[in-house]
Design a protein around this nucleic acid. Sequence first.
DNA 1: AGCATGCGTAAGTGGTTACTAACGTTAGTG
DNA 2: CACTAACGTTAGTAACCACTTACGCATGCT
Lengths: 114, 114
Amino acid sequence: MGLSALSADGVDPVLRALAEPRRRAILRLVSEHERSAGEIAAEFDITRPAISQHLTVLKDAALVTERRDGTRRLYLARREGLRALRTLLDELWSAGLARAASLAEAEDAPKEKP
Amino acid sequence: MGLSALSADGVDPVLRALAEPRRRAILRLVSEHERSAGEIAAEFDITRPAISQHLTVLKDAALVTERRDGTRRLYLARREGLRALRTLLDELWSAGLARAASLAEAEDAPKEKP
DNA sequence: AGCATGCGTAAGTGGTTACTAACGTTAGTG
DNA sequence: CACTAACGTTAGTAACCACTTACGCATGCT
């Protein structure tokens, strides 16, 4: 049950945050250099408060960092926040590989009894 | 533009499917060997129709395959379905690396691990 | 045929989410 | 101080999601 502990890390808020096209677009916008909330909002056709709420979700999921500069707030993607998701992905991927391996192993030995 | 095309391929249903703890648990249940819908439902404290709906979501996201065996339906995780998510993850990860690289370039002294 | 098993589907419901509009707050400027 | 700029926050709403109950549809057995 160590495996489930690995994936139960903090992957839930990350997946919930990424399960929204606009939030992924925002994340890409701030993935290389930081941008202000206004600059981000200018890229979309929804209102600025909506963008602010999306930024809050991303921040709570630890996917972006917030830095204050005067009246502005600058956001930047936080690569470390993706780590839990990468762990989950690797876990599912390797589980599939384990199945493929046992299938290859079963070619010699006919059957397995649970 | 090419980058956004990469991540826009089919990652949305995948992320939506994974953004649910029970669906991730189901995916892990069928990640190594196939199980029937009833066997899966027996592992949870929600009703069978609810599990069936979750399985439909997973199937629509191409994360599981469905095979009929008599009156039963056997499900198995489909590793290939995770590929779009892996692509998105790599894209975001490498974007962060690109930023770190340009930062290191801008500074004279290299700064690697805080 | 008749009946049971195993599952999906339809309809309806409470809770959540993404949005808009209006208001509040903080930092800078004259 | 007053005033503006740049945001976040609150309140309210329409759409969505996960769930349950009831029903339908195959397949297998006698």
